[in-house]
Design a protein around this nucleic acid. Structure first.
Lengths: 248, 248
DNA sequence: CGACGGGTTGATTTTATTCAAAGGTTGTGG
DNA sequence: CCACAACCTTTGAATAAAATCAACCCGTCG
């Protein structure tokens, strides 16, 4: 498990691990105070569904710890992941009554939820929140567009390499800032969930991971722990611009 | 050509065809006044590039008339469209120095541009602009996620049918509100641009359009004018939920 | 133990791509 | 006015990539 089974909800915003990255990042003390009055924590076990697409959704919120997925499903069961929610990511859309996507906790997860109505009021009255939400939404849109390139134009091998390099990069920024050298991280998703992320079948995911391993691009310790001896090599396999997709 | 060769720039915001849908939609008279001082119009002929990915971008703006595309290109030339910009759509990202994508005018086009620095100031000081931009960005994110499902999980035939139904629906809302019955519209894109939109090759696009025609799902007058005898049939071919993907 | 939820690997089939040729339009210059 | 070039489109045949169908492995958990 990536997270403690006893997900301890922070006592108050001062202790909050996502205080400076979430939608509240720019809030002053008095604004946090107001948010505090409309917030509550919810915990979800790994595998639990947070909400189904189409259901009434009377809250929005932030992932505090753990990982969740946003997925869309067609009538015949084909599913596509459209979001991978990490700590500090925002869930829900102000101004919308119902959930547009299925939200599922992949690991044990804690969310900091805000009642929707009051939160909408705060957006209108608290520029710091609206600005931060705009910034986060623009970031998500950029990520979605990168993802579209992956889905539309990359080969199965490039898709896997891209996904792994995203995970590796995230891990590097969260921990130490070493790039270019060796790095390792844990796969948070099953083969099936990776397939839903990448628009592939789980068999193809498994085969391409095996192929990358055989070619020495990655090493596996167990099914989930990945070691990347040469990150530049992985980036190369991902087919990304050599500049590492530097934006802004 | 879809548009006049002499794209007449509106004299002032009162005449503007996108006044109530663009980023300025919620602005009061005094706010429009301020925007007016930092705005200027630019016209582009069909085929002209507005900006290349990576270039310095000292403006943001709205499409006033015409159509543009947002595309990403890999080193080896594979390209994926990541945005189709219609009148009122916003171009550029506040807070970013360089363009993240290629922007190309598909038809003759007029943009209402704002100098970036002053516009960023206005976002900070004018909640009406920030709020509208947030709303538009959230809409784009939803569209991007719908597009991800298309790219990742739909067959070539479903992709074409989905694209046609998007165009048909857009045309219906712009003109008359009849759904379910017959409707017709013009294809704004070449087969190649459609292929870039859908993550296909142009040959596959051509074949699938021919197949839909042969099966009576659509009728063609010339290469560009499409007639849809039964919109529900088209929706069915698109593999979308029967409720027509109603959001919000 | 036995069932179950992942995961891997192989054989076959399907789908879309690639390579190739040719038909239509449009616009330009002789 | 015609010829030709450039671009867009269609269609066919061969190929490649990923999906599908199927078997089996390996831990974990009741």
């Amino acid at each position: 498990m990536l997270n403690d089974l006893k997900n301890p909800a922070p006592r108050d915003c001062g202790d909050c691990p996502i205080r400076h990255r979430a939608v509240c990042a720019r809030c002053e003390a008095d604004e946090l105070e107001k948010l505090d009055q409309i917030k509550y924590y919810r915990s979800f076990e790994a595998g639990r569904t947070v909400i189904w697409a189409g259901d009434q959704m009377d809250f929005v919120g932030s992932v505090v710890t753990g990982i969740a997925t946003l997925t869309q499903t067609m009538e015949d069961g084909r599913t596509q992941m459209v979001g991978l929610l990490l700590p500090s990511d925002f869930v829900g859309r102000p101004g919308r009554e119902t959930a547009a996507y299925d939200v599922v906790a992949v690991s044990d997860m804690v969310m900091c939820c805000f009642r929707k109505g009051p939160f909408e009021d705060m957006i209108a009255k608290t520029p710091h929140i609206a600005q931060r939400l705009l910034e986060m939404t623009l970031d998500e849109l950029d990520a979605a567009r990168e993802w579209m390139l992956l889905l539309g134009r990359k080969t199965a091998r490039e898709k896997i390499a891209s996904f792994l390099s995203i995970l590796a990069r995230r891990n590097a920024t969260l921990n130490l800032g070493q790039a270019g050298g060796a790095m390792s991280f844990e796969l948070p998703l099953t083969r099936e969930a990776m397939a839903d992320y990448l628009g592939l079948t789980l068999e193809t995911v498994s085969r391409q991971i095996s192929a990358l391993k055989k070619d020495g691009v990655i090493e596996l310790q167990g099914k989930r722990l990945v070691n990347v001896p040469d990150f530049d090599r992985l980036l190369d396999e991902a087919g990304d611009d050599s500049d590492g997709g530097m934006l802004s």
